[in-house]
Write a protein that binds this DNA or RNA. Structure first.
Length: 664
DNA sequence: GTAGGGTTAG
């Protein structure tokens, strides 16, 4: 009989919640481990199985899930750990269906298999998955602490504190992780008071308990309270080394909230030894995470210089340090320094590569981004997404769709980021058919959040499918943000539904949603299209006094458009002459359009000349002016324009549409 | 290979 079996005893949970008996083993030494199944001694495992298990785990850890699966399929000698490792890989990637398939297929399941599967379900969003996890929990033949704690934290994370507590109370023997899990649940659900209550009454605390409380307080915006807790309970904590963990949490918290000075104050409180003195095992000193968190705080605050100063001081930089610093330069659009660091860093991981890609894409260097993308040893989903969104933002719409096809061929599944970029592509290229396909993918693969719904509304709005846009908008009910409103108002406004646009704008104001500059662009546009001159003027005048939005050149362009269409060309010119910004092509374009409608050739000439300066290559103003002269029978002036076109080497460009060719 | 707390990318 092996040794550990001696310590196993069984406990029975109350019948009320129908839980089968489970088996718990005792703590053994420092490492708390609980075993609930007979496991073979490591020396009994054949070396080839041990080797493949290690290889699979490494592949999965390296993000090469599909390679891991290929290896798994190839080998014939597997043990339960092999199956579990593979399941764990799928669980990490939220590929719950594939995980379940393996779970159902495997010849022998141990408690780890069940725990893995439960945690897989619970890490997916939605009540359905929560119930599925619970079903497994109730069905499993034996439970250990991990099963219980997984289930408790699953409920807590989903905000179901009632169910979490019910299970917690049922546990005859709770361990410190169980306590930490419920406390974390209270904090996650904003119940700071109860969390502190439980923290105070828990029978024993470990280093994570303090961390749970501190980070939970930070999430609840109680930063100063977090610092108090740190001092009050941190003192009694004999694990000095673990104190750094809690300090790091707070440094990161201050950094996240932009309180960089407080972060630094705390950072300076952590001693920084240089090798001598107390035994290294249990002392309170800065570790690399402290440095990384402080660097991040500076980066969040936009202080790349101070961040770099610290970065250069770290003696043992890890991949995090490098990546954080690179991300700082990427955020500051300093791609040269970012790629300089990248070339110096010892072991760039996929994240480093992705940072460089988005750095190049952000600065418009799409070619370079692509070069790096091709060179990534193991692309992950973010690599694909970065490249796709890079294409989208640099108007390489065909490139974005081509990459998406390649991504699918490579077996990488789209997520909300992929889909949102693709929806932008559809909106920009007015590709309704493709947009509808992406919409289907959205329904199938993710739970649409506010930004994704906004992208859908924008896409449908841009494509003129106002009804579909409205359906999504309506379905969002109370989960809208100002972008949702803007997208819907913009959709109406750009497709001639001025009345609906303005009605929605009024509703938005009634509901106290603050309009933005984008809202007003659509609103004024709607007024222009509907010929609502007086209303347009009023809306324009209300922008600054009522909403604190200073009109920008787009708004002036709309105002010029509104009054110009109405034939108030003098007023239009007065707007231009008195506005605080330089008129752009939209402004002059509005004037020119108004002149065309109201037959004012002299003013048209002024506007056209202004446009010729702003857009020397465009034939538009020349043609318009030519036609106006021709219509007026002023053939001399007309031929002068024609000559001007020739001397300036302007060709009448063919009208083209930007509809994406890959949309079918 | 599974549960609770700290730092990086789209």
């Amino acid at each position: 009989m092996s040794l550990w079996w001696r310590n196993v005893r069984s406990l029975r949970a109350p019948i009320s919640i129908h839980i089968a008996p489970y088996i718990i083993a005792q703590k053994s030494g420092q490492n708390i481990r609980y075993y609930s199944t007979l496991r073979p001694k490591i020396s009994d495992v054949p070396p080839d199985i041990r080797r493949t298990n290690k290889n699979i785990t490494n592949l999965i850890r390296n993000g090469q899930l599909n390679d891991g699966r290929r290896l798994f399929d190839k080998i014939t000698h597997r043990n339960t750990v092999t199956w579990n490792s593979m399941i764990s890989g799928y669980v990490q990637q939220r590929e719950i269906v594939k995980a379940r398939q393996l779970f159902d297929e495997m010849p022998q399941r141990d408690v780890v298999s069940w725990n893995l599967m439960i945690s897989g379900y619970l890490s997916c969003q939605g009540r359905r998955y929560l119930d599925e996890g619970r079903k497994l929990f109730d069905e499993m033949p034996q439970r250990d602490f991990i099963s219980w704690n997984t289930m408790i934290s699953g409920y807590a994370k989903a905000g179901n504190m009632g169910e979490a507590l019910e299970l917690f109370e049922c546990m005859n023997e709770k361990n410190v992780v169980s306590w930490n899990a419920v406390i974390s649940g209270f904090l996650r659900n904003g119940d700071v008071k109860t969390a502190v209550e439980y923290f105070k009454k828990m029978p024993e605390r470990d280093s994570a308990s303090l961390g749970v409380l501190v980070s939970g307080l930070i999430q609840n915006e109680e930063l100063d309270e977090a610092e108090n807790v740190l001092y009050e309970f941190g003192r009694s904590d004999d694990g000095k080394k673990d104190m750094v963990h809690a300090y790091n949490t707070l440094i990161a918290g201050y950094g996240q909230k932009g309180r960089v000075d407080d972060a630094r104050r705390l950072f300076d409180k952590i001693p920084c030894y240089s090798g001598e003195g107390i035994s290294k095992k249990n002392r309170f000193e800065r570790n690399v995470v402290s440095w990384n968190s402080m660097i991040m705080a500076y980066i969040k605050a936009g202080d790349v210089v101070s961040a770099r100063e610290l970065f250069d001081q770290i003696t043992e930089k890890d991949t995090f340090s490098w990546n954080t610093m690179i991300s700082g330069y990427v955020h500051a659009s300093n791609i040269d320094e970012a790629s300089n660091l990248f070339s110096k860093m010892p072991n760039p991981d996929v994240l480093s590569w992705n940072l460089i890609i988005s750095g190049y894409a952000q600065t418009g260097k799409l070619e370079l981004a692509h070069d790096y993308f091709e060179r990534i040893p193991h692309k992950n989903r973010v690599s694909w997404n970065s490249m796709i969104s890079g294409c989208e933002r640099n108007a390489d719409y065909e490139g974005a769709i081509k990459l998406f096809r390649e991504m699918q061929q490579a077996g990488e599944k789209p997520d909300r980021h992929t889909l949102s970029s693709l929806l932008s592509v559809c909106a920009e290229t007015v590709a309704l058919f493709l947009g509808m396909q992406i919409h289907q993918l959205v329904t199938k693969t993710v739970i649409a959040d506010i930004p994704l719904n906004n992208s859908l509304i924008t896409m449908y709005g841009r494509c003129g499918a106002i009804h579909e846009a409205g359906t999504i908008f309506e379905k969002m009910k109370f989960q809208k943000d100002v972008i949702s409103w803007n997208a819907m108002i913009g959709g109406y406004a750009s497709h001639g539904f001025a009345f609906e646009a303005l009605e929605l704008f009024e509703l938005m104001k009634c509901l106290k949603v603050r309009p933005t500059r984008i809202t007003f662009i659509s609103v004024l546009n709607a007024c222009a299209h509907a010929g609502l001159v007086e209303q347009g003027r009023l809306y324009f005048k209300s922008m600054d006094p009522e909403f604190g939005i200073k009109p920008e050149v787009e708004h002036f362009a709309s105002l010029v458009d509104i009054v110009g269409r109405d034939g108030q060309l003098e007023e239009a010119m007065e707007v231009i002459n008195t506005m605080p910004v330089e008129p752009d092509k939209a402004v002059w374009g509005a004037v020119l359009g108004a002149c065309r409608v109201h037959n004012n050739v002299e003013l048209a000439r002024i506007a056209a000349e202004a446009l010729m300066c702003l857009e020397p290559e465009s034939s538009g103003p020349y043609c318009l002016l030519y036609n106006m002269y021709a219509d007026a029978g002023r053939w001399d002036d007309a031929s002068e324009i024609r000559k001007l076109m020739e001397t300036n080497n302007i060709r009448k460009e063919r009208a083209y549409s930007r509809v994406c060719s890959s949309s079918s």
